[in-house]
Amino acid sequence: MLRIDCPWCGEREEMEFSYGGQAHVAYPKDPQSVSDEDWAQYLFMRDNPKGLFLERWVHSQGCRRWFNMARHTVTHEIFATYKPGEPPPKAGQ
């Protein structure tokens, strides 16, 4: 079980949180102008790396707010958590 640093509440147990999939997959600004291929890409395709992954979490049993996390998918090492709208931390930070 992970120990997660909520950007608003601080460190809490993983059981307080829910997972939200890959981060930084923006909803297209004007979906009607997006091609079928690009729309399918948005709907169905997500990265599944072995290693660093930027992903969304929500503190569902706490402040109920969303945030992003940089996590290693094999070691579960958490490199950073940051608020929505903030850029992901650069490598090494």
Binding site: D30, Q32, A40
Partner: peptide, 11 residues
Amino acid sequence: DFIGKRSFSRS
């Protein structure tokens, strides 16, 4: 527009 509308023109 609304969430899901774009998908109503998918094949």
